[in-house]
Amino acid sequence: MNITRLILVAVGGQGNLLASRVIGEAALLSGIPVRMSEIHGMAQRGGVVESAIVFGDAKSTIISDGEADMLVGFEPSETLRALKKANSKTVVITSLAPLSPFTVAIGKGVYPDLAQVQNIIRAKTARLIALDAVSLAKEAGNVMSVNMVLLGAMTQSKKLPISSEKMKEAIAATTKKAFVEINLKAFDLGFSAADKSA
């Protein structure tokens, strides 16, 4: 089976690892070989969390620079930071809601301009789907559902070998019961936002 490589990057606490878990369970439900790995050294201390997900007949669980088929950033500056993982054929999905790192507040860096970030990603990759995942999550009923919004957008792009149905089944099976309804709504909002950005 063809190999599809997906990178998710987020700030600690944004729910990247849960999103990875959902994708892994969805692959399992679909009978698709999947391997994943995560780097979350000090996630709760505000650092970056990166997950790699490899679908298909590969043994490796990480993705080298230039080799991601899809890059998903939960935060725009982190999407830009991870862009070295992409190539000219990569589909990039990014949330546009910034979480400014503390280094900016103490004057040790400048937060990049969002329009410029999008232009650069567009110029260097095949497609950019940009959406305000935080607003959509709030619209769905819980700001914590940013990860579900992005799962919806990923599924819409058809770049992953997983159907909407299986992804939703995995969301229902993996996320907390009390939040399933909101999560599915967030998924749908992300799906249609990506549809509109096409």
Binding site: V11, G12, G41, M42, Q44, R45, G46, G47, V48, S64, D65, G66, E67, S77, E78, L80, R81, L83, K84, A86, N87, S88, S100, P101, F102, T103, V104, K108, G109, V110, Y111, P112, D113, Q116, V117, I120, K124, T125
Partner: peptide, 22 residues
């Protein structure tokens, strides 16, 4: 031929996000 890593020389510098005391 290794994969083409995008040339990011024209991209703005991304501020560091080191782990921090909570």
């Amino acid at each position: 031929t290794p994969p083409q890593i995008p040339d990011l020389s024209d991209a703005p510098e991304v501020p560091q996000r080191p782990p921090n005391l909570c």
